[in-house]
């Protein structure tokens, strides 16, 4: 075993080859390497490279989504081991398009990108009532909630959801990120949320939000 294996695993992730990433993951595991090391030195490093190249415009969205899929297929064998050894996933994110809004393409993209970066996604779909976000956050002890809205009318539901979170004492325990074409950074700040303009920035934002909470 050695770095060569990890390089291969990173390549498999980068090129979006699900079968290969799974089989390499299995063979590294068989060599006795622990799941956490494989996750960090193989999968996440591979995805980081994908992220950088996507930002530079060298990779396109479908390639990123394939890489995310490859990562997911490796995770099917790693996840049970990680849970067993008490390693927390890099984070669970609740996502949904707010009540009254059915625009979900952007939200889905954000979800796929987050998943590809190792986050666990609970997708509540579209037209989601504030209470559902909150119930789910409590049930899953979720630290980050992402809301999407494409209508100036439904943007107000983001505000309302946050107010209800405060009422139910959840707001202090979570960070809220928001997005969608009409949403602005100012609006996000006003309502006490964090903004990102697109799916790849959403990944950076989610990382930031989780790191804020462990401190």
């Amino acid at each position: 075993m050695g770095n060569a294996d990890f390089a291969q695993l990173q390549d498999a992730i980068y090129s979006g080859d699900s079968d290969k990433s799974l089989s390499i993951t299995e063979s590294i595991l068989a060599e006795g390497i622990d799941a956490k090391t494989i996750l960090n030195d193989g999968l996440i490093k591979g995805m980081d490279k994908v992220g950088v190249d996507f930002k530079n415009g060298d990779l396109f969205l479908p390639e990123v989504l394939l890489a995310a899929r490859a990562m997911k297929s490796s995770m099917t064998v790693l996840k049970p081991l990680l849970i067993k050894s008490g390693v927390k996933s890099s984070g669970k994110v609740i996502l949904g398009t707010v009540k009254g809004d059915i625009h979900d393409i952007g939200k889905n993209l954000v979800g796929m990108m987050l998943e590809g970066s190792g986050f666990e996604i609970i997708d509540l779909g579209n037209d989601v009532e504030p209470e559902i976000f909150i119930d789910m956050a409590i049930k899953e002890n979720c630290k980050v909630i992402g809301m999407s809205a494409m209508l100036t009318t439904t943007m107000m539901m983001m505000k309302e959801t946050i107010i209800k979170m405060k009422d139910r004492g959840v707001y202090d325990k979570v960070k809220v990120m928001v997005g969608g074409a009409p949403v602005t950074p100012q609006f996000a700040e006003e309502i006490g949320a964090f903004y990102s303009a697109n799916a790849s920035e959403a990944v950076d934002l989610a990382k930031k939000l989780f790191s804020m909470q462990t401190n």
């Binding site: 996507f54 969205l61 952007g106 799916a199 790849s200």
Partner: peptide
């Protein structure tokens, strides 16, 4: 038309 490099329509 989706710009596949950034994900905007």
């Amino acid at each position: 038309v989706m710009d596949m490099a950034i994900g905007y329509a």
